[in-house]
Amino acid sequence: MSEYHYVFVRPGHPRGRLRRDISAACGAHLHPVDAEFIDYAAGLGHAVIEVELTHDYDADHGIPFGRHDSLNTVRPPWLPERHRSACHPFGGMTAM
């Protein structure tokens, strides 16, 4: 099962309503994030939700992703031990 879950949303305007609705649904305040693909995020303890107000996904397998201009991602929090275990194989491959 995927650890990342993507929800494509067509929020309409004003976009602030989307942020308030997601915050209310998650019970956490979405705060602005200075990242390339993430506009807002909130930590939920057991998960992180990230909001992109725009994305570059095109239609794929007949799914019109472009009609839904915002993307919400729910993922597990980055835990140091998870990061180390994910990086270990890549470190070995780059040493080759």
Rank of each mutant, 00 (worst) to 15 (best):
M1T: 09
M1H: 14
S2Y: 11
E3S: 13
Y4L: 14
Y4H: 08
Y6C: 11
Y6D: 15
Y6T: 10
V9R: 06
R10I: 02
R10M: 11
R10C: 13
P11G: 02
H13W: 15
R15D: 00
G16K: 09
G16C: 11
R17F: 03
R17A: 08
R17Y: 05
L18G: 07
L18S: 05
L18R: 10
R19K: 00
R19T: 02
R20P: 01
D21G: 11
D21F: 06
I22G: 01
A24T: 09
A24K: 12
A25F: 14
C26E: 07
G27W: 06
G27D: 08
A28N: 00
A28S: 03
H29V: 11
L30A: 02
H31Q: 04
P32F: 13
V33P: 06
V33K: 09
A35Q: 02
E36N: 03
E36Y: 07
F37R: 08
F37V: 10
D39I: 13
Y40E: 01
Y40P: 05
G45M: 03
H46L: 13
A47T: 06
A47Q: 08
V48N: 06
I49S: 13
E50S: 07
V51G: 03
V51C: 11
V51N: 07
E52G: 15
E52Q: 15
T54I: 09
T54W: 15
T54L: 11
D56V: 12
D56M: 06
D56L: 15
D56S: 15
Y57S: 07
D58A: 04
D60F: 15
D60C: 14
H61W: 12
P64Q: 08
P64W: 04
G66T: 13
H68V: 05
H68W: 12
D69K: 14
D69E: 06
S70F: 07
L71N: 05
N72I: 15
V74C: 08
V74N: 01
R75V: 03
R75Y: 11
P77T: 00
P77R: 00
P77D: 02
P77G: 00
L79F: 04
L79S: 01
L79E: 01
P80F: 01
S85D: 02
A86E: 11
A86N: 02
C87K: 07
C87D: 06
C87Q: 04
C87L: 08
P89S: 04
P89I: 02
G91H: 03
G92I: 05
M93H: 10
T94K: 13
A95V: 04
A95G: 11
M96G: 15
